[in-house]
């Protein structure tokens, strides 16, 4: 493995623009490190870091147990670049097989913040874990995020996106490989997404807009679900709310069997409804157009609105 570091020196203050949606950061320099295991930063506060690590085809990049604010973008070089400012706790870059791991080296188990911008080849898979605000843009490999607290924003992802956070909002825009997203306590927003969608919020809203998918599942315990998208023949679309409303907007020419269940809610439809099943309680089914797809809407306590797009 060839690992090299760019040494800009103390005078090499580097300013790099971040995407407009990201948190503004500037003024980063670099710090030299070792070769196989690359140490970024040093044991003093607000160290500037700047390093490059060569990546091989098929390498997976893992940002492990990090805190702070990190943006990840793509470039056309087969290298992993990390630029930013840490708080004095060294960052280690380690290779294990085809996994290149970026970790903090705090043997006392303390959490320290890192503000960094990372660039990597678009096609490599990325996994991130920790407690951080995260921006990821322009990757075509898979993205897997396991977060504790912090907002997550992902854009222009061509691969499969899987993101979980205990606390923090999730935004995914222009994704082409399907999205699985879960925030236990904040909103989950997906826009312009293709592929399978599985979105969940514990106590926030789930907004799914411009969705092109044959499989959609959305669930919230305490919040609203909003969906606007296509209904594919053979598709399966499920919307599950405990305490909140479900607004489902489908094309006027959609073909689907719609199954509605509620315990203490209301149902409003822009479509004429021909009941095909009424099982008692507040469950019924009907068909919009032909029964080629299945739409399931279950709201324990709240309003259901089936809208024409």
């Amino acid at each position: 493995m060839r690992t090299r570091l760019l040494s800009i020196g103390l005078l090499g203050i580097v300013t790099f623009p971040l995407p407009a949606q990201t948190n503004p950061r500037a003024e980063h320099a670099e710090h030299p490190g070792a070769s196989f295991t690359t140490m970024l930063g040093a044991r003093h506060m607000s160290t500037m870091v700047d390093t490059l690590v060569e990546l091989r085809p098929g390498d997976r990049v893992v940002l492990e147990n990090l805190t702070g604010q990190i943006s990840v973008g793509s470039w056309d070089r087969n290298e992993l670049e990390i630029r930013g400012a840490d708080d004095g706790v060294p960052i280690m870059v380690r290779r294990s097989g085809s996994t290149v791991r970026v970790v903090r080296d705090d043997r006392k188990g303390r959490r320290h913040a890192l503000d960094a911008r990372i660039r990597m080849p678009a096609s490599h898979d990325l996994r991130v874990s920790g407690s951080l605000d995260l921006w990821i843009e322009g990757l075509s490999g898979s993205i897997d995020v396991d977060n504790v607290s912090g907002d997550i924003w992902i854009a222009d992802a061509d691969g499969q996106v899987s993101v979980r956070t205990i606390e923090g909002e999730i935004d995914v825009v222009r994704s082409r490989g399907g999205v699985t997203a879960s925030s236990q306590s904040d909103d989950v927003r997906l826009r312009d997404v293709r592929g399978p969608v599985d979105a969940h919020s514990g106590s926030g809203d789930v907004q799914l807009m411009e969705i092109v998918s044959a499989r959609v599942r959305a669930e919230t315990q305490d919040g609203d679900i909003t969906f606007s998208g296509t209904i594919d023949d053979g598709g399966d679309y499920g919307f599950f709310v405990h305490d909140g409303d479900a607004e489902v907007a489908i094309p006027a020419d959609a073909n689907a069997r719609v199954e509605v269940s509620t315990f203490d809610g209301e149902f409003i439809s822009d479509f004429p409804v021909v009941l095909q099943r009424f099982t008692g309680g507040r469950e019924f089914a009907f068909t919009v157009g032909a029964p080629r797809a299945r739409i399931t809407i279950q709201v324990f306590d709240g309003e259901i609105h089936l809208q024409r797009r």
Binding site: S185, D222, D243
Partner: peptide, 21 residues
């Protein structure tokens, strides 16, 4: 402690849903 607070709060939402159901 902040993590504990977050975990408890989220869990209470689920417990509420369970109790309602």
């Amino acid at each position: 402690p902040n993590t504990v607070r977050i975990l408890e709060r989220n869990l209470s939402v689920i417990e509420q849903a369970i109790e309602d159901s």
